[in-house]
């Protein structure tokens, strides 16, 4: 796990099984973003990134889960979310990170767009072994 979860506040796990779950995840991320005092714009960016990634997990990964919570490092606070699925994985990561490239009829902005919206972005994937995407947004 890349995220240094803040002491005393355990991250929560949310399932991503149907499209209705995305609404709950957005709400959960919003609550966390407010708690860690992200600016309004940063809150919006983090929730939007989470929404994109959760939808990826659902559509391309065949569902999975997200672990979200507060993080702290070097005196800064932030929000982190780790999206995991056990789907087919991504064969060509460079291609998947390119703006406008899509395998599923979307706009192809999910991964590359989400990366631009957050401070830390990490993608772990291999064909046949699922995909894990970790994102973090730090308060300024």
């Amino acid at each position: 796990m890349t995220a240094p979860w803040a002491a005393g506040e355990d991250p929560k796990v949310y399932p991503i099984a149907r499209s209705g779950d995305l609404v709950h995840i957005r709400q959960a991320i919003r609550a966390l973003a407010q708690q860690s005092r992200l600016s309004l714009v940063d809150q919006t960016k983090m929730i939007t990134a989470a929404s994109e990634l959760a939808r990826n997990t659902l559509i391309y990964g065949g569902g999975g889960k997200v672990t979200a919570g507060l993080v702290s490092a070097n005196g800064r606070r932030g929000v982190a979310a780790v999206f995991e699925d056990s789907g087919p994985g991504i064969p060509d990561v460079d291609q998947a990170m390119t703006d406008g490239w899509t395998s599923g009829g979307g706009l192809g902005l999910g991964l590359s767009g989400a990366r631009r919206l957050v401070d830390d972005f990490r993608l772990d994937t291999a064909p046949g072994e699922g995909t894990t995407v970790s994102i973090t947004k730090w308060a300024r």
Binding site: V41, Q43, T44, T48, L107, L109, G113, L117
Partner: peptide, 14 residues
């Protein structure tokens, strides 16, 4: 459209 939403959409590439 709210400012924060507009900024986010532009950053997203939309």
């Amino acid at each position: 459209m709210r400012p924060a939403v507009a900024i986010t959409l532009v950053e997203l590439g939309l």
